Simulated assay, not measured.
Amino acid sequence: IYIDVADLNADAVFDNIDIGVAAKDASKGPGMKGGGEQANPFGFAQQADKATLSDVKQTAWATTAGTFKLSGLKMSVSTGVKECY
């Protein structure tokens, strides 16, 4: 899973985790989509062979995953700033 996130709250289990990797050097997972996007040169990442997240609440610009299961998903559109959880 790749998450460009400002805030994330979840119960999480990571297998074989690397914490504090320079964002541009992250090598596991799907990474950023093409089209000229570049990692923040001052950004950092964590990466793992496997991540299991439950009870997720996030404020994110992007989420990309090979498999992404959303049980009980509810979505709505509204005006103004309203977080997605």
Score class of each variant (00 low, 15 high):
residue 21 V to Y: 02
residue 63 T to D: 01
residue 28 K to R: 15
residue 57 K to H: 12
residue 54 S to A: 14
residue 9 N to T: 14
residue 2 Y to N: 06
residue 21 V to K: 02
residue 59 T to Y: 07
residue 28 K to V: 01
residue 84 C to W: 07
residue 41 P to R: 05
residue 43 G to Q: 06
residue 62 A to W: 08
residue 61 W to H: 11
residue 7 D to I: 08
residue 78 S to G: 11
residue 36 G to Y: 04
residue 45 A to I: 02
residue 35 G to T: 02
residue 12 A to I: 11
residue 80 G to D: 08
residue 67 T to G: 02
residue 17 I to Y: 03
residue 23 A to Q: 06
residue 34 G to R: 08
residue 33 K to N: 08
residue 31 G to T: 06
residue 85 Y to E: 11
residue 43 G to L: 08
residue 56 V to C: 03
residue 15 D to N: 05
residue 64 T to E: 07
residue 79 T to M: 12
residue 54 S to W: 04
residue 3 I to H: 08
residue 52 T to W: 00
residue 29 G to W: 03
residue 73 L to M: 13
residue 21 V to A: 02
residue 6 A to E: 15
residue 55 D to K: 15
residue 81 V to S: 13
residue 75 M to Y: 05
residue 46 Q to A: 14
residue 57 K to I: 11
residue 55 D to W: 00
residue 31 G to D: 07
residue 12 A to N: 07
residue 26 A to V: 14
residue 17 I to R: 09
residue 28 K to N: 03
residue 5 V to N: 12
residue 83 E to R: 04
residue 57 K to T: 14
residue 21 V to C: 02
residue 33 K to S: 11
residue 34 G to W: 00
residue 84 C to T: 10
residue 34 G to N: 07
residue 14 F to T: 02
residue 47 Q to R: 10
residue 16 N to C: 00
residue 72 G to F: 02
residue 10 A to K: 06
residue 68 F to V: 01
residue 58 Q to D: 07
residue 66 G to F: 03
residue 78 S to M: 05
residue 73 L to N: 11
residue 69 K to P: 00
residue 80 G to R: 09
residue 26 A to G: 10
residue 66 G to C: 01
residue 56 V to T: 07
residue 68 F to N: 14
residue 22 A to K: 15
residue 24 K to P: 01
residue 30 P to E: 10
residue 19 I to V: 15
residue 13 V to R: 14
residue 35 G to N: 04
residue 63 T to E: 05
residue 35 G to P: 02
residue 16 N to V: 02
residue 24 K to C: 01
residue 42 F to V: 06
residue 10 A to G: 05
residue 19 I to Q: 07
residue 6 A to N: 13
residue 71 S to T: 15
residue 50 K to A: 14
residue 22 A to Y: 03
residue 60 A to K: 12
residue 37 E to L: 13
residue 66 G to E: 13
residue 64 T to K: 11
residue 82 K to L: 13
residue 47 Q to A: 04
residue 84 C to V: 09
residue 60 A to F: 12
residue 31 G to Q: 06
residue 40 N to T: 03
residue 59 T to F: 07
residue 5 V to L: 06
residue 50 K to W: 06
residue 15 D to W: 01
residue 82 K to N: 13
residue 52 T to Y: 06
residue 75 M to I: 09
residue 75 M to G: 11
residue 45 A to T: 02
residue 51 A to I: 15
residue 53 L to I: 10
residue 72 G to I: 03
residue 26 A to D: 06
residue 32 M to K: 13
residue 33 K to A: 14
residue 47 Q to E: 15
residue 11 D to K: 12
residue 8 L to C: 11
residue 11 D to Y: 05
residue 54 S to F: 07
residue 59 T to N: 09
residue 15 D to Q: 08
residue 63 T to N: 10
residue 8 L to S: 11
residue 19 I to G: 00
residue 9 N to P: 00
residue 11 D to N: 14
